[in-house]
C-alpha cells in the first residue's frame, strides 16, 4: 500500500513544504489535534505537488493568503472550536511562572529591604521608633505587601504567556478571566498548607521539603488553570 504524502517528505519541493508548514502552523495555533491536521495537510501537499509538476507556485494555486486558506479549511472541517490545548497552555504557563520566579528572586529580596528601610524612615519622621527595641508591627504588612506584589506579578506573567500561546484559540478571553480568578484562589488554598509544612518541618531547606512545598503550590495553580480552560471551553 502506498502511504499518504507527508509534507516533510524530502521528495516534496521546498516551496510546497514551506507553504504546507505555514498552513499546519495556523492549524496548530488553533489547537487542531495532530492526526486531524496531518491527514488534511498530506492531501494539500499532494495537490500542491501536482501543481508544482505543472510549473505552478503554491501561492498562485491557493489564490489567497496561506492564513486565509488555512482558516477556511479549518472552518469547513469544523475545527474552529475551542480545543482544550492543556499541554500548550501549561507549557506556556510554566514559562511565565519560571520568568516571574526569576525576576521575583532578583527583585524581591532587595525590595523587602528597601521598602522596610523606607517605612522605617517615614515612621521615624512621625516619631515612631522602629528597629531594635522599637515597634515591630509595621514589618509584617510590608513583607506581606511585597509577597502580594510578587503574587500579582506571577499571575500576570503566567496569564500573559498563556495569552500569547493560545492567541488564536477560541475561548481565550474566558480562559484568562477564569484563570485570573482561579490562580489567586489556588494560592489561597495551597499557600497556607505550604506554610504549615514549612512550619512543621522547622522551615527545613531540604530538597524534599522544598520540592513538596513548590509542587503543592505550582500543582494547585496548574489545576486551577486546567479548570479555568475546561470551564471556558465548555461555555464557548
Amino acid at each position: 500500500m502506498i502511504s499518504p504524502l507527508s509534507p516533510q517528505d524530502r521528495s516534496v519541493p521546498e516551496d510546497v513544504r514551506r507553504v504546507v508548514a505555514r498552513v499546519q502552523r495556523e492549524w496548530r495555533l488553533l489547537g487542531v489535534p495532530r492526526p486531524l491536521r496531518d491527514a488534511v495537510a498530506g492531501d494539500v501537499a499532494a495537490d500542491l505537488h501536482d501543481a508544482h509538476r505543472q510549473g505552478r507556485t503554491p501561492e498562485s494555486v491557493l489564490g489567497t493568503s496561506v492564513r486565509d486558506f488555512a482558516r477556511e479549511v479549518a472552518r469547513e472541517n469544523g475545527w474552529l472550536v475551542a480545543w482544550p490545548q492543556y499541554g500548550r497552555m501549561l507549557a506556556a504557563a510554566a514559562v511565565g511562572a519560571g520568568l516571574s520566579v526569576l525576576v521575583g528572586a532578583v527583585l524581591l529580596v532587595p525590595l523587602v529591604g528597601w521598602s522596610t528601610n523606607v517605612v522605617a524612615v517615614v515612621l521615624g519622621e512621625a516619631g515612631v521608633t522602629v528597629g531594635d527595641g522599637g515597634d515591630p508591627s509595621w514589618y509584617l504588612p510590608v513583607v506581606l505587601g511585597t509577597y502580594v506584589l510578587f503574587g500579582a506579578g506571577f499571575v500576570a506573567a503566567v496569564l500573559g504567556c498563556v495569552r500569547w500561546a493560545l492567541r488564536s484559540a477560541e475561548g481565550l478571553t474566558r480562559t484568562l478571566r477564569f484563570g485570573a480568578l482561579g490562580l489567586p484562589a489556588s494560592a489561597a488554598l495551597s499557600l497556607p498548607v505550604a506554610i504549615w509544612i514549612g512550619h512543621a518541618s522547622g522551615f527545613s531547606t531540604s530538597p524534599s521539603v522544598v520540592l513538596t512545598e513548590c509542587g503543592l503550590v505550582l500543582g494547585t495553580a496548574a489545576a486551577a488553570l486546567v479548570a479555568a480552560r475546561a470551564w471556558a471551553v465548555r461555555t464557548v
Partner: peptide, 13 residues
Amino acid sequence: DVSYGTVYPMITR
C-alpha cells in the same frame, strides 16, 4: 478566478 484555495474548502464542506 476560482482557485484551488476556494475549491478545497468547498469540497470539504
